[in-house]
Design a protein around this nucleic acid. Structure first.
Lengths: 360, 360
DNA sequence: TTGAAAGCGCTACCAC
DNA sequence: GTGGTAGCGCTTTCAA
């Protein structure tokens, strides 16, 4: 351990050039693999580089070229399996094209999201993938574009923002899921979702700032209305953002006298709490309570009964978002595209007809 | 939409200086908040900056100062909930100190890991957090340090690498879990783990390149040997890296005539497959098969029976790793530290005594 | 307090 | 094919 000054100054192009007895420009060309160099020079330079353990400084390269080889990603929460998988997808796609990913959590908070955009822009990422926390506040996204930074929206649209998006058809997915329940004769169907909301009860679409949530509720209401269900919005519950509030909301819902006979859970975490609550209250699924959940979380196919789910192609969503972004970075200036991936309604064992027919 | 050239060149310090009628140096000082500037100048500069929508270029700043405000993170797979949570923890900690996180997946592959280190070093990250894919190949980690880049190991040690680590005591955790089973009179206990291996059967510790896996197997064997179990290694199965192989391994294990009466699953994904297999084979848990799993995945407490688990503090692991790293970046040159966090054995319903006593 | 100028490490342009 | 040189946008001496 006598190497107290282990951290010696890394070798630069200039060092290599000197060691190889060529000009800086020649060395740079040999090292960077551009322009033209005689093979003799190239050999000398590469040899010197190896000897000096030369590593290019990406930063300097970025400053000179304007390209960083990095894409910035802003999502709500990496702990959410949906985003975990989406990030994996976009990382894989980015890696294939030689891009790195710099990741930020917005905590579904607009202030944090705004700050993250600023930082990533300052770091001169080549492009941005964002799952916006709200569809309203989009000035920061607009000026990313204004600064010439390509942008792709992931999972969530922001109406009026003319950029590429990778999404699913949430309205249709929610409608189909609800219809499955309606076809089984359910007439009291609840919809439980996480989303920032002043109150847990539902008033109107304007109340909802998250594009996905709004679309799903629209789909849910569409199916309900079509089937002539009375007051279709009365069983919609917002704000199930964490375990505790989700539990409270579900308990409240299930202990009411005219409790719903079926629940649509807007994500797997909520579904888990429905499962737990049903167990606790002694309600048998699906005999006394039907359940359909968004996201095909790994556990849903293993529990008894296995949960009927709306599977979302989260990995592909991320992958496609990255693909579109990288294409943009490549320079193609075309119309904004909407990549809409299909969801799959996987029928399993958690849905059946309600216990008492002719209830009304 | 007449702004076809929306992407106009962003304002620089020079632009601001010109607009404010001061020198570049003065503007830079006002903007960067260092050195000394008269409040008159400061005001003019800040006003001009606002008018021109000036945003500092972090890259240029990094080139000049040598600090990037970014830490690089290399993990096996962000889709793994354990890492998802760890990344969340380290992101949160990093954000608190104003650092950004640039994330790479190694796919548990040494070549990819090596490449990732090179890239992150080239991007001049201020420090590195790595969950090394193997304890053997550590040259790339060593020369990160040699280049003066602080390094912290996450979840997995690499013997001989004298750097900070944030880990749990896997050996102890596995020993305790195994002993729980032994105390319940199990004598045929299997250990199923994911890890790169030529063969699924276990020969010796040297075969295992992943620090965590090796420690856990050591703990498992320790408890087994202590209890005088015959051939304690015979039910160890390696290579359960994905759903398909995990299923095959478990099916093989459970359909043998002298099948184990208990299984220790090395992660929640494997536990899920054990659950699935037991269901498929008609084996009742815990009556006919006991199960203990590493990682307190959300579903483990909801299924019937609820799964006994070794809970790992994954979020904290990430958080502490980042904390130590940032301290290092701060400059404190001290001895390498080992941050060892406690696991918790959570007893639930998936463990009981084996069906037939006096079996041997 | 202020301004001029020298880098940071690389690319890219332009003569030779 | 090769070498000089002017930037990229910022920080940081150093004199004034």
């Amino acid at each position: 351990m006598h190497e107290r000054f282990a951290a010696k100054r890394p070798a630069t192009v200039a060092d290599v050039a000197a060691a190889a007895n060529v000009s800086k420009a020649a060395a740079a060309r040999a090292l960077g693999g551009y322009g033209s160099v005689s093979s003799a020079v190239k050999l000398k330079v590469l040899e010197a580089a190896r000897r000096l353990d030369y590593r290019p400084n990406e930063l300097a390269r970025t400053m000179a070229t304007g390209r960083s080889g990095t894409i910035g990603v802003i999502i709500g929460d990496i702990e959410n399996p949906f985003f975990g998988s989406a990030v994996r997808g976009l990382s894989d796609c980015a890696a294939q094209s030689g891009f790195d990913v710099i990741l930020s959590n917005s905590d579904e908070t607009i202030a944090t999201e705004r700050a993250a955009v600023a930082v990533l822009l300052a770091k001169r990422v080549d492009g941005l993938i964002v799952a916006p926390a709200t569809m309203h506040d989009k000035a920061h996204l607009e000026d990313a574009r204004a600064q010439g930074c390509p942008l792709v929206l992931l999972d969530r649209e922001a109406p009026g923002l003319l950029v590429d998006v990778a999404i699913v058809n949430n309205q249709e997915a929610a409608r189909d899921a609800t219809q499955l329940l309606i076809l089984a004769d359910h007439r009291r169907i609840a919809y439980v979702t996480a989303t920032a909301a002043a109150d847990v009860s539902y008033e109107s679409p304007e109340q909802i700032a998250l594009a996905t949530v709004r679309s799903r509720i629209t789909g849910f209401l569409e199916a309900s209305t079509l089937a002539g269900l009375p007051e279709p919005g009365r069983y919609i519950r917002l704000g199930a953002n964490n375990t505790a509030t989700a539990q409270a909301i579900i308990a409240d819902l299930l202990s009411a006298p005219d409790r719903p006979t079926a629940i649509v859970a807007s994500d797997s975490k909520i579904a888990l709490e429905v499962f737990r609550a049903a167990k606790g209250l002694g309600l048998a699924i699906p005999r006394q309570l039907s359940l359909v959940a968004f996201d095909d979380a790994d556990w849903t196919s293993v529990v008894s009964p296995a949960v009927t789910v709306v599977a979302q192609p989260s990995y592909q969503l991320g992958f496609e978002a990255a693909r579109m972004l990288i294409e943009r970075i490549g320079g193609t200036r075309t119309e904004p595209r909407r990549c809409i991936l299909a969801t799959t309604l996987i029928k399993r064992e958690s849905t059946a007809s309600p216990p008492m027919r002719g209830d009304f």
